[in-house]
Design a protein around this nucleic acid. Structure first.
Lengths: 192, 192
DNA sequence: CGTTCAGTTGACTAAGGTCAATTCCCGTGG
DNA sequence: CCACGGGAATTGACCTTAGTCAACTGAACG
């Protein structure tokens, strides 16, 4: 039942049966309905989720405006990582965009796994490195390219599924622009 | 001689004497003169540096323009982390802003430490998490705040030493704006 | 059908960039 | 000690990009 998660974990670091048994008893399933929240700004996030079906977004709020920084689909972890590791209230919210099925476990359990098993620790390192690489890419995208270039990069990246599955106003938000601007960019791009 | 590095490492994870001895024989010292490079765009970065004295910056090049994303001072690691972990050519360059003294070791050695010791692996996880947290903060800064707000945040952050030790045109670059704009922002701020 | 919400389009605004002239600061050589 | 040269910072005039506001279209759904 939780094999999908185990397989995904093993893409980062192989996990023995004994290791797996440290985590498995603490896994549970959860369904978050469309527009429901997994994590909420101002609250400490104590759980890790693994999306088995559905989609979510991860956003900050500023002056009442939401700024989406990430989307999640099947086969990815979802959590307010910063809040988990610092234990402080999170600065972001995570919302289901469709009815979403998750496998969930407490971060505290993962932390124990880290302490008790070198393999789990290695997994932890790998996932943090993977995260850092993704953030670096996102950060440089914002710093180096303008809105139109960012849109074209999205078109040509392995993130195509964002374009296919996410409504345009959220894509605009993700690109750091307004829906109006994205519409114009698409318009200009189509004319060439 | 390398105690400064050991102490810094132990802020992330305690390291036994035996662990330390895995790394120590591979440490060396290096001085990079002002404007010299530690890592170069297009080349694989295979080393980790630890700044004991001096300052460096970390920048990308786009259309012949340099975009500075980080500064380094005493007591920090410096490397093209992404290039190290992926083994691919780096997208960024790292330059000494003043004559800079470093302790240097090969990433390959660190990788071996990770494999052989749970403590080192924990250090690796911690450092990656620390890095991810920093990148997240930087990314959200760019996405959520305009140039003036970013400048004020820098004023009120623990990164004050950037303002004290870095020339203004590089600070502007770091904030994602031109020196001209930064000058105007400072002018406006002073009038209030 | 009418309501609602996403997307498009037009007119105007604002933030920041570009270009160029000027001033300031500082090191070097006469 | 002073004069000069060069890079950093400032300032003014103008331009470009994206944001704002508002009207309109169109598809989805009760």
């Amino acid at each position: 039942m939780f094999q999908q998660l185990k397989q995904y974990i093993e893409r980062f670091s192989p996990i023995s049966q004994a290791d797996w048994e440290m985590l498995e008893p603490h896994l549970s399933q959860r369904v978050i309905p469309k527009n429901g929240l997994f994590s909420k700004e101002g609250k400490v996030c104590r759980e890790i989720g693994f999306v088995t079906d559905g989609s979510m977004r991860h956003y900050y709020t500023k002056d009442g405006e939401e700024k989406t920084t990430y989307f999640y689909f099947e086969n990815s972890f979802v959590t307010d990582y910063i809040s988990c590791i610092t234990g402080k209230p999170g600065a972001l919210s995570i919302e289901a965009l469709t009815d979403t099925r998750l496998i969930v476990f407490p971060y505290a359990v993962l932390k124990q796994c880290y302490e008790q098993s070198h393999s789990w620790e290695k997994f932890g390192r790998s996932i943090a490195e993977y995260l850092a690489a993704g953030l670096e890419e996102r950060m440089t995208g914002l710093l180096l390219y303008d809105a139109e270039e960012r849109y074209r990069q999205l078109l040509n990246s392995n993130k195509r599924k964002i374009l296919e599955r996410i409504p345009q106003h959220l894509i605009a938000n993700y690109l750091g622009i307004t829906p109006v601007s994205l519409s114009r960019i698409r318009n200009r791009a189509a004319k060439k």
